[in-house]
Nucleic acid binder design. Structure first.
Lengths: 118, 118
DNA sequence: CTGTATCCGAATGGATACTG
DNA sequence: CAGTATCCATTCGGATACAG
């Protein structure tokens, strides 16, 4: 029972982890948002100002998604005008060094071909 | 001229790198493919067998994209039946440790919420 | 200030059938 | 064996207008 299939088993057991990682990074703005919040807590508008070409729709959507995923913490202050601050969660800060490492990947492949992404 | 905008400059200089990294990982199957090829050279069908739910269309498309990006090397043998082997490029192998690190991110966030991705 | 609602074109990813 | 061609539903991301 539980016969060992050639080399499938070890991979498939890791696939949920891989999917989770990809899910967190899925979209043009997830990593940029994470890296900015890794430097400091930012308000919605501050984030928007530093990501000049992101639309409100996408920014709000990604912030909600990252909050749900446990990467980002959303803090609302009952003030007028309203103030909302975004910070990395503890887990987010724990994972931050790895997110930062991803820039190294960009560096490694930055001269290999034209930029198809933007 | 070239007035320094508050704290935009340091980030925007890194954005191309970030975009490149995201581009490489863009799609459900890019990272899984890279990690499998990081273990060993594989033929098209072997890859397909280890990624049971990927379609031919997507697999072929991602392999082409990763080849163009300089991550994966495609090697065709003039045999009958045809044989095509996929390997990581030198750069791909250089970046492999970072790709592997991404599984750690999956681990960090794996208990935070339901799996929305698959 | 911090979003949501709506519209739209483009890209994604799966299914199926077919080819050299 | 290693794909390509076609079709299709869903999602993505940008633009704009509006709201609490």
């Amino acid at each position: 029972m539980a016969r060992n299939k050639p080399n499938d088993e070890s991979y498939s057991s890791e696939q949920p982890l891989i999917n989770r990682a990809i899910e967190i990074l899925y979209g043009k703005w997830r990593l940029p948002i994470i890296l900015l919040l890794g430097q400091k807590t930012l308000r919605y508008t501050e984030l928007k100002d530093q990501l000049p070409s992101v639309s409100d729709r996408v920014l709000a959507k990604d912030l909600r998604a990252l909050t749900t995923l446990g990467v980002v913490q959303r803090k609302v202050y009952a003030e007028v005008p309203p103030r909302v601050e975004y910070t990395l969660t503890e887990r987010g800060r724990l994972a931050l060094p790895i997110f930062i490492q991803l820039k190294e990947i960009g560096r490694i492949f930055s001269t290999s071909s034209d930029d198809h992404f933007n």
